[in-house]
Computed example of a mutant assay.
Amino acid sequence: MTNTWEGSPMATVVPLAEAVAELVHDGDSVAMEGFTHLIPYAAGHEIIRQGRRDLTLIRMTPDLLYDQMIGMGCARKLVFSWGGNPGVGSLHRFRDAVQNSWPAPLEIEEHSHAGIANAYVAGASGLPFAVLRGYRGTDLPAHTPNIKPITCPFTGEELTAVPAINPDVAVVHAQRADRRGNVQLWGITGVQKEAVLAARRSLVTVEELVEELEPRPGAIVLPGWAITHVSEAPGGSHPSYSAGYSTRDNDFYLAWDEIGRDRETFVAWMKENIL
């Protein structure tokens, strides 16, 4: 297995800037997951502030956060299955990078949602690839070299395979953690668990630290021994939301369409609000 968490000590609770400085390096593959809510904006903004470059960004549904990171020159490649400003339109910084190489060329690797999810599961399971039917009948295999046909050795059925995703770093946001680094999250959970378990290093930002995690129906607990660092970041998912703690800032998503559309407006906004 590529995972390094087995047999490792419990996660340590450290300030966000310290966690990013230690865990995220130039040239790393970085998965920042969160579906609809619990999107790790605070951590992404810290990566931008620390000036990381040449990152391979992985995310099932890149939205405004990756638009910001791409526009600030952090990314060399994007591995994804859908990209856009949810309910609004395009990601203009993403589009500008692909079409015009601004501020730097961006390589893309496009998959289906099922392909990315299964690739994370394979990575978390210590397997070299995932097998699925979902690409049959689509033109994605013609455009994505990392989608390959494979024949079932038992039935002869032709399927498709995608390589496991084992990010150098996985970054997710959650509602709370205890002092030993055990993390609890609930709501729409997406593939956060799989991304953390597949990664070589991991950072979880949380709304709050508590002395003890109270049982909650439907909640997922990521054990501290599977996580590298936990950082407290109240409001760390804004403008998305954290179920039970905050609501979605819909006005920001609408405003971003104009902010991100123009290069100079974008850079000025990032300097004033993030840097």
Rank of each mutant, 00 (worst) to 15 (best):
Y135S: 04
E158W: 04
L16N: 11
L16D: 07
D139C: 05
V14Q: 13
N3H: 13
R93M: 03
I58T: 15
D249Y: 04
E208N: 05
P103W: 09
E212H: 07
A161N: 04
V169W: 00
H173L: 00
G87I: 06
M270F: 09
W186D: 02
I165Q: 08
P167I: 11
L127K: 01
A17D: 15
M270R: 04
H229K: 06
P149H: 06
L91M: 12
I47N: 06
G190A: 04
T61Y: 12
T205W: 09
T61E: 14
P153G: 05
E207V: 11
R216H: 02
R133G: 10
M32L: 13
V171D: 01
I116W: 01
A43H: 02
L106A: 03
G73H: 07
H25M: 00
E264F: 07
S29A: 13
R179L: 06
I150R: 05
K77C: 14
I48C: 12
P145M: 11
V191L: 08
I150W: 13
G83F: 15
L57N: 11
G89F: 02
G115L: 13
T205F: 11
H229T: 04
L203V: 11
I70R: 13
A199E: 10
N273H: 15
A174D: 00
A226M: 10
R180A: 14
V79H: 12
F35A: 00
A219R: 00
S29E: 07
G44C: 06
K193A: 11
Y253N: 08
E46Q: 09
I259P: 13
P86I: 12
N118D: 08
D96Q: 14
G224V: 14
L23D: 00
H92L: 14
D26C: 10
H238P: 00
E272R: 10
Y241V: 01
D28W: 03
T155E: 15
F35W: 06
P167A: 09
E110S: 09
E212R: 14
Q184T: 09
A219T: 00
T151G: 08
D28H: 12
G181C: 06
A199W: 13
I147D: 05
L209R: 03
I188W: 03
L64W: 10
L203F: 05
A75H: 15
T151C: 09
G115P: 08
P167G: 07
M270S: 06
F94P: 02
V131H: 01
E212D: 04
Y241P: 01
R216F: 01
G89K: 03
Y135M: 02
F35Y: 08
T247S: 13
G71I: 15
I227Y: 04
H173N: 02
Q184K: 01
F94V: 13
V210K: 03
G71V: 12
A19H: 11
T36F: 10
